[in-house]
């Protein structure tokens, strides 16, 4: 290759680039989507939230002309990936798919550079993760009330497993203990699977973890009560705390898709419409159900209200926790 001609063509390219830069941004909205959409998942591949993204990408194949690419950016309990989307170009090609509850509680617990409501707008809710109170199968406590009685008799003596402080399972567990004036020693594990293994091996007395974690573990783990107002779509024989009339705070985690705040309204509306269609496909529903979690679609306004309610509901627990820290 001739050196001069290379530089000439490079110079032409750069000039052309600069000229079309402003025009390009304007043109994109008309033809959205014209290139692959990056769906950032702030957790490792293979996890529960990742499964939603993969199912979404599979469901999108028949509906959208461009591919949906799942990008795993784990770190800081999901905040690393969230921040990368918040600062990305707001053109609708970089979206965040995350566990809304964990995201919200993490930003409330730690000094965080991103805020769920300020830096993002909701595209839609596509799923729901719920947590449940579980005990080992050989546990002497056969119901939530028996466990509460034991906790009252031995304050601070019993131990419970969870997937890490800052996750919504932990906050839900803490909120349950607070609402019933109970104390117990928590043992944090790194992720849901190690916590479940510790519970299965009866290394702790009880635990709070995702309801889907109990599937296939019937011999080793008994879920006692679900942290929700309504029963789970798949594990239908597990009663809710509400049915049992046990005080609790409804902390779950909607799986949400979000876009940077400045994304154009018509692009978000278009994306929302796609997501509504995809979540209605059988491909998506089947893939999600096999994971043991639930598909649940909701409009942006609905999910935003849900998250705001959850923030209000969990503020007392969080203040109590952060107060304890300082």
């Amino acid at each position: 290759m001739q050196l001069t001609s290379f530089f000439k063509s490079a110079a032409t390219l750069i000039t052309a680039t600069c000229l079309s830069l402003s025009a390009a941004t304007a043109a994109q909205a008309d033809t959205f989507p014209s290139r692959p959409i990056n769906l950032v998942v702030p957790f490792n591949a293979g996890g529960g939230v990742d499964a939603y993204a993969r199912a979404l990408a599979a469901g999108a194949r028949d509906l959208i002309d461009v591919p949906v690419v799942v990008v795993n950016k784990p770190g800081a309990g999901g905040l690393t990936g969230a921040q990368s989307v918040a600062t990305a170009r707001p053109d609708g090609y970089t979206l965040l798919l995350t566990s809304g509850g964990s995201f919200l509680l993490n930003t409330m617990l730690n000094a965080s550079p991103v805020d769920m409501f300020e830096n993002f707008q909701f595209v839609s809710q596509i799923g729901q993760l719920s947590t449940a109170l579980m005990v080992p199968a050989n546990s002497p406590y056969k119901s939530a009330n028996e466990l509460i009685a034991a906790l009252q008799e031995n304050p601070g003596k019993l131990r419970w497993a969870h997937s890490g402080r800052g996750g919504f399972h932990y906050i839900a567990g803490r909120a349950f203990l607070e609402s019933n004036n109970l104390t117990a020693q928590d043992v944090p594990f790194k992720g849901g699977s190690p916590a479940r293994a510790a519970l299965a091996g009866a290394q702790t007395d009880f635990g709070f973890m995702g309801i889907q974690q109990a599937r296939g573990f019937g011999e080793l783990i008994h879920p006692l009560a679900l942290v929700a107002d309504e029963r789970d779509g798949i594990m239908q024989d597990i009663p809710t705390f509400k049915e049992l009339n046990i005080p609790f705070v409804n902390i779950g985690s909607p799986v949400v898709v979000m876009a940077p705040t400045k994304t154009a309204a018509d692009v978000v509306a278009q994306l929302n419409q796609y997501l509504e269609q995809i979540t209605a496909t059988t491909t998506f529903a089947e893939l999600i159900e096999k994971q043991g979690t639930a598909a649940l679609y909701a409009q942006p306004a609905v999910i935003e209200q849900k998250m705001l309610d959850m923030r209000t509901a969990s503020t007392p627990v969080i203040t109590q926790l952060t107060g304890q820290v300082q």
């Binding site: 490792n44 591949a45 293979g46 996890g47 990742d50 499964a51 993969r54 699977s193 190690p194 479940r196 293994a197 299965a200 974690q213 599937r215 296939g216 573990f217 019937g218 011999e219 080793l220 893939l287 096999k290 994971q291 043991g292």
Partner: peptide, 27 residues
């Protein structure tokens, strides 16, 4: 126990789940 030792392990678990094979003591 459903505890993966690595990311590949986690993805392997995902494949089981996608095909409706429940991981656990009864597998």
């Amino acid at each position: 126990l459903g505890v993966p030792g690595s990311t590949i392990g986690a993805i392997l678990m995902g494949v089981f789940l996608i095909h409706g094979i429940e991981i656990g003591p009864t597998l």
